[in-house]
Structure formats: C-alpha cells, structure tokens
Design a protein around this nucleic acid. Sequence first.
DNA 1: CTGTCTGTACCAACTAGTCGGTACATAACT
DNA 2: AGTTATGTACCGACTAGTTGGTACAGACAG
Lengths: 205, 205
Amino acid sequence: MTSATKTPNATREHILHAASRLMTLKGYHSTSLDDVLRASGVGKGNFYYYFKSKEELGYAMLDRIILGFVERTLEPCFSDGTVAPLDRVRCFFDRVLEAQRQRNCVGGCPMGNLASELSDVHEGFRQRLAEIFTRWRARLTDALAEAQAQESLGPECDPAVLAYFLVAGLEGAILLTKVTKDIQIMEACVGELKAHLLLYTRGPR
Amino acid sequence: MTSATKTPNATREHILHAASRLMTLKGYHSTSLDDVLRASGVGKGNFYYYFKSKEELGYAMLDRIILGFVERTLEPCFSDGTVAPLDRVRCFFDRVLEAQRQRNCVGGCPMGNLASELSDVHEGFRQRLAEIFTRWRARLTDALAEAQAQESLGPECDPAVLAYFLVAGLEGAILLTKVTKDIQIMEACVGELKAHLLLYTRGPR
DNA sequence: CTGTCTGTACCAACTAGTCGGTACATAACT
DNA sequence: AGTTATGTACCGACTAGTTGGTACAGACAG
C-alpha cells in the first residue's frame, strides 16, 4: 500500500463520493445500493459497517453536498466584505450560471432535485433540505440588508422577501435549463434576476 | 347512450386517474405498477391490455396532466382577449398561487417534479416536458408581446426572455414552497414577479 | 364462434438489508 | 517469548419482498 494512505476511513469516503455522484444525477430512489457499491468497489457487508441504512447514507451524502455547495459556490462570493454587497449577489448569480454551463446543463441543482423528489415523501429529508435553503437565503438576506443600510437598495425593499425570490428564480432557472438543455435560458434568467435588483436600486447603478 | 359521456373505456380512465394522482405525489419511479393497480382496482392483465408498458402509462399520464394544466390554469387566464395582456399574466400568477394554497403546499408542480426526476434519465420524457414548458412560455410570450405592442411594456423588454424568467420564477417558487411547506414564500415570490413586470411597465400601471 | 375485455398465476430481475465468516493488527495475559 | 483475546475492516452469499412484465384461461358481448 502506498504511503499516502493515511486517510482514516478512505472506504467511507469512497462510498460517499460515489453516492453523491450517482444520487445527484439519478436521484435518491433510482440509485440502488448495488449501484453505489459497484461504483465504489465496496462490498455490501462493508457498506453496512459504515452506514446503518440507505437512509443514513442519504443524510451523509446530503451533508457532503451542502458542504461542497457552501464552500465552492456560496462562500467564495459572500465572504469578502470589501466587495459591495450587491456585487456579491451578482457574483453569486454568475457562479451558479457558470457551474451550470460547465456541467453542460446536466444534473440540475442537487439540492433542488432532492427537494423535489423527497419533500412530500420523506419528512426527515424535507426538514434538512428546508434548512439548507433557509441558510442559503440567509446569506443573501444579509447581503441585501447590508446594501439597504448603505442605501444602495431602496427602503421599500424587504431583503428577506427579495432573497426568497432570488433563490426561487435561480432554482427555477436551473430546472428549466436542465429540462431544455439550453444554457441560454439560464443566461436569460440570470439577466432578469440582475435586472430585478435594479428595481430597488438607488444611487449609481 | 347517455347524452353526456358514453364512457368509452372507463377502465383506462380509472388507471390514468390513479396514476396521475400517485405519480404527481410520489414521482414516476417511486410509484409502482402495483400501487396504481391497487388504487384503481384494476387487474394486471387488464392493465397490460390498455398500456403496453409503464413507460407508455407515464406518457399518457403526462398528456393528461398537461391537458388539466392547460384547461384549468392556463386557458382560463389567457383565452379572454378583452382582458389587458398584463392582467392576464397577473391573473395567471394568482391562479398558480391559489392552486398551491389549496393543495396545502403538497405536491409541488407535477410537470416540474417530473422534469426534475426524469430529464437526465429518460430522454423521451425530457423531450415531452421541454415541449410543455415551451408551450407554456409561448402563451406568456404572446401576452407580453401584445402588451409591448400596446406600449404598456417598454421596447427594451424581450418578451421571450421575460417569459422564460416568469416560468422559472414560478417553478422555483413552487419548489421552495413545497420543501418549506410555507405558503408565504409563494406569496412573496408572486409579489416579486408582479413587481418585476413593473420594471418594464410604461404608462398607467 | 369471434373479438374485446378481465382476473389469476406466474416469472426473472432487482430491492434493501442480514448473515456467518475472514484477515489482520494491536493488546493482554502467562 | 508465546498465545490468547479483542476490535476494526472487509467480503459475498443469502433472505424476504418488490419490481415490471408475461401467459393464459375465462367472461361477456355481438
């Protein structure tokens, strides 16, 4: 074995990696345990050593997806306080658009997909997913509120409401892009979302 | 024969009715044939007399869903030419919101759900779903273009692009409402969508 | 009798999950 | 030292139940 195999439980990681990939592509129900096992090269007994059920694997995979989304997409845009708050939001739009372009309109939004598949069918997943969207929206709300405090957003705007709408707009755009396989729709929607910000914009735009 | 409906093949209708209900709630893959059979009280042999596969049932169910959506939601708003075009659009928003309220945030958008579940996994369904969204958007585009011709929408607005965005906004709003089970989010998003129209609105609003 | 329907029995493939058993490293006891 | 025990990591056959789909015999009309 190579010296680099210091990894504490590489097997668990293998499983999670394969599961995330498959489930974000095919969904939770349509990804069988055997699919995951085949893709990760792990035996069944070994799987049940690390996870007590498929459900628990699902939860772990969800945590992994969230982490990836937060680290790769959300934080890079919102962590830099020197950037103007509305520009942080715009940066985020562009990043989501770019991600969609890179994936060739395949896969859609992992969180949106799971939300659509499981919200009405599995309360545990629903709650976790709702929490994710809330956290996501909170990041946007904060930036919008900051913009409002700086008077680059009008006082008639409710940052929380606007944040909901922006999340919804992005999710819907991703879905439409996924089903039509046409990235231009994503571009159009991001353009409209940016224009929507102008609706409340005061001062230099 | 009764004057109203002769019930040409009631069994087929029973199956379709049960299938639509179950599949819009639980999704295509998670609805088994036995589920449909149990719910409709139809035997298996009988089922395969009317449908040659589950896939074909899915297509038929999709057609049924579309028809219902068009007849119950789309047409009532857009068929009346005497209503101002932008009011037709607003009426449509309200109708979608109302539908969501009546269903207690359960189920989401049948077409959106199927799009999310099947777009990357079943090309046949993807194409049909893409076509639906296109037709839906076309209805909006026409109304918006008419508004533009009447100069109640500014010339800088691209009706096709705006229509995409409105569909995306609605789909995203329904998804967010489904996962959070909070109708207020739907209301907020519809409010923002209406506000978005104002962005391009000229003349008396 | 003939063609349209319908129910029952059945199939192979697949599902999540369980089982007994193995390999191996570290520790504990003598 | 030697050997006995313990915990971790792993395997693949197996179970019970479900999946979509088929075969076929009977019913019921014209």
